[in-house]
Design a protein around this nucleic acid. Structure first.
Lengths: 210, 210
DNA sequence: GCCGGTATCGGGTATCTTCCCGATAAGGTA
DNA sequence: TACCTTATCGGGAAGATACCCGATACCGGC
């Protein structure tokens, strides 16, 4: 039986290319998602062995999807696919439970290798990231980088994308008041007190694109 | 004789996926470049009919490659492949001489269509970008970037810096209502309708720092 | 001399933001 | 067990935003 995966990346062109790569290797692509929420729905419905998640997606980023995916389909293993070489991302991803971290700058064989390793229950890291991650784990076993909680980062990202609090609440499936609380918490923690400042912070920290 | 192209994108994984897509369509991929300088060397050596260039590349971005490519191989036609949907990028690219502008969020058939159109000497734009670009050309045939008046740019900059309308009015020595009118005008002209979007626009256009 | 763009100002309103106050529950840590 | 963080939800209020309507005035181009 072939390995069954879903692909989540906001670029259709990239998804279709990856699908060809994987199908050539007899890896079955059950579905494609263009944003985080769609990815979660798809994982919940299709229960794939493996989910390949882009780190930069509108609405919900890969790390947030990761956490939610573990809830709706614990047997699904996740692979983070990204252009970020900074190890904080990788460390955070692994901490949350990702089984592999693959750089988009690597060859497609790297993704295939990651899928095969993860399918066998192993953890896989792109060669270029390995050293940095191991070092990061050794030097700093706990304490990530951010003062913000995961939920707060999600809300911040959506604020940066221009969504209203009500819209954010709808996207995350929580009440407007809760979304507002998260937003307020973010402002308090960062000591930033207008939308414009939040947007600039989100851009500086790579949560969104300018 | 098949169409001969080179691919320039800093993500190997993406390049390899695209290569499969194109080869399936009997488009020959002469070479792949992972940065702007490599792309130029490759264009100079291989003289492809078409060069597919990512806009975000380390070292030299797609637009700069565009200019240089026209010098070293005038017969090579260029296609910009990007994740940016903002029309300023597209307008600038076309101004410099790109023959097509394809979004990564579109289907791979879109890139294939672009290559075929460009090979026939035509210009191709991703459907989602077309309207915006046409509008930009019609409403403003010249004028580099200045759709906004001086006063409007001042207000936009102050908005981006996080000031309230009242504060902006005070800083500029005008009434709150006037400042509000300018702000509204900016939103209308740019077709952006939340503060977050204005901030990102201001950053993209160098009005403020992230 | 008319038209378009810029700049100035105002009333009004629906929505959103920012910040108070409060609460419950789950989870890990000391 | 006691404590803290996180996440959830609510009422209320003051201010800001987004957009609707209107107006006057200057300036430059055709």
């Amino acid at each position: 039986m072939p390995i069954r995966v879903i692909l989540a990346d906001d670029h259709l062109l990239v998804r279709q290319g990856l699908r060809l790569v994987l199908e050539k290797e007899h890896i079955e692509v059950l579905g494609e998602a263009s944003d985080g929420l769609e990815a979660i729905r798809m994982i919940q419905e299709l229960l794939p062995e493996i989910a390949v998640l882009d780190l930069d997606m509108p609405g919900l980023d890969g790390l947030s999807v990761l956490r939610e995916a573990a809830r709706v389909s614990p047997q699904t293993r996740t692979i983070i696919l990204t252009r970020h070489m900074e190890e904080p991302y990788a460390v955070e991803a692994l901490r949350i439970g990702a089984r592999a971290y693959v750089l988009k700058t690597q060859a497609s064989t790297d993704l295939v290798a990651a899928i095969r390793h993860v399918d066998r229950g192993e953890v896989y890291l792109s060669p270029k990231i390995s050293n940095a991650v191991v070092r990061a784990f050794l030097t700093n076993p706990d304490a990530p980088n951010g003062k913000l909680s995961l939920r707060e980062r999600q809300v911040l990202q959506l604020v940066g994308e221009g969504h209203s609090t009500k819209k954010i609440a709808a996207l995350l499936g929580i009440s407007t008041k809760t979304a507002d609380t998260h937003r307020t918490k973010v402002m308090e923690k960062l000591d930033i007190h207008q939308t414009a400042g939040l947007v600039r912070y989100a851009i500086r920290n790579g949560l969104i694109e300018p």
